[in-house]
Design a protein around this nucleic acid. Structure first.
Length: 318
DNA sequence: ACCTGTCAAGTCTGG
DNA sequence: CCAGACTTGACAGGT
């Protein structure tokens, strides 16, 4: 059984390099027409350069998967701006797309929490649709066919059952290009792993298990009973199942992420999975120290050993 | 150089 | 019905 490790969005080892620079709308309003377009292009260019640098860093460190920032293109979906970034950066996207493809890197994104598929407000669902379409546009510009969007179910207005029904109805009303790229994750407040599994089975899309969220909100469900079915939601996918792992900051079930990963908890979890299912899978490390936390975990795992055998920088077998 | 408040976007709670 | 919490990084403006 092979397990690969990855991290989220920001490479701290690269210092100030960021692919999430922004132009805020209030800042934008203070500029004249020329300055506006110049600024948007300048920031976008710098974000794309940074993304390329981060991807090369990932490749150099044998990191096989990565989550793209949701701030790559400033104001791309703002209703009063909606500028045509595609027209200016087609070549740059193509170039970066080739880097991703040549390294065979798994490449996902996680639209921000104000995207709510099951919102009771039509305006929110509408802007969510715009944002998700833009995320798909970016995948397509990168020619990234396997890129997925990780989302939560959303709010619970009118009760959980009603909210689930709203989610499924709205999901089915979305264009296929979005449906095909959506994958769903259990959250830390409302929808448990079992809830999300049920939804994923009904609409036939893969589920990402977030084990930290599960500890925050589980309704006493036992993850060992669910893990086989969760992994099975990936059966018709090219990519292996994906799991998010983080260590709580202050106390057990603290929703905030700690700087680093507790290696013993990590080993315990991996052991639990192994006892239930024999499938390769990917673990996304979500920690404040990002890539540094990933590398520290790897060092810790090598030290503790416990039958974990690394077969490349970020992949181990057990 | 360092610190602080603000930023397009949602949801939920509690007054 | 409204204010504040939740929560994250970037950035502008102040010291």
């Amino acid at each position: 059984m092979k397990v690969r490790l990855g991290y989220v969005a920001i490479a701290l080892n690269l210092g100030k390099v960021t692919s999430s620079s922004t132009v805020t709308y209030s800042r934008y309003l203070k500029m004249n027409d020329n300055e506006r377009l110049e600024k948007l292009k300048e920031v976008t260019y710098s974000n794309l350069q940074a993304l390329e640098e981060i991807l090369k860093y990932n490749i150099n460190h044998n990191i096989h998967f990565y989550r793209l920032t949701s701030h790559l293109i400033p104001l791309a979906t703002h209703p009063e701006v909606m500028w045509n970034y595609k027209q200016y950066f087609k070549k740059d996207f193509e170039h970066i797309g080739k880097i991703i493809k040549s390294s065979n890197m798994r490449f996902d994104c996680h639209p921000d929490q104000f995207n709510v598929i099951n919102s009771t407000k039509e305006s929110v669902v509408k802007s969510t649709l715009i944002n998700l379409n833009t995320a798909v546009d970016i995948f397509e510009l990168l020619d990234c066919k396997d890129g997925k969007m990780v989302m939560h179910i959303g709010g619970s207005q009118g009760g959980k059952e009603e909210s689930i029904k709203r989610f499924i109805d709205n999901f089915r009303s979305f264009p296929l290009r979005i449906q095909e790229r959506l994958i769903l994750e259990n959250d830390d407040k409302i929808f448990t792993a079992k809830d999300v599994l049920r939804i994923c089975n009904e609409i036939k899309i893969p589920m990402v298990l977030d084990i930290h969220h599960h500890h925050c909100k589980s309704d006493n469900e036992n993850i060992g009973d669910l893990i086989v079915d969760i992994f099975n939601t990936w059966d018709s996918e090219k990519l292996p199942p994906k799991v998010h792992f983080s260590t709580p900051k202050e106390f057990e079930n603290d929703r905030k992420h700690a700087d680093y990963i507790n290696p013993n908890d990590f080993i315990k979890f991996i052991g639990l999975v192994k006892s239930k299912v024999d499938k390769d899978f990917d673990v996304m490390i979500e920690a404040k120290k990002k890539d540094q936390a990933l590398f520290k975990l790897i060092e810790d795992l090598k030290m503790i050993n416990k039958g974990i055998k690394f077969i490349d920088d970020t992949t181990f077998e057990l």
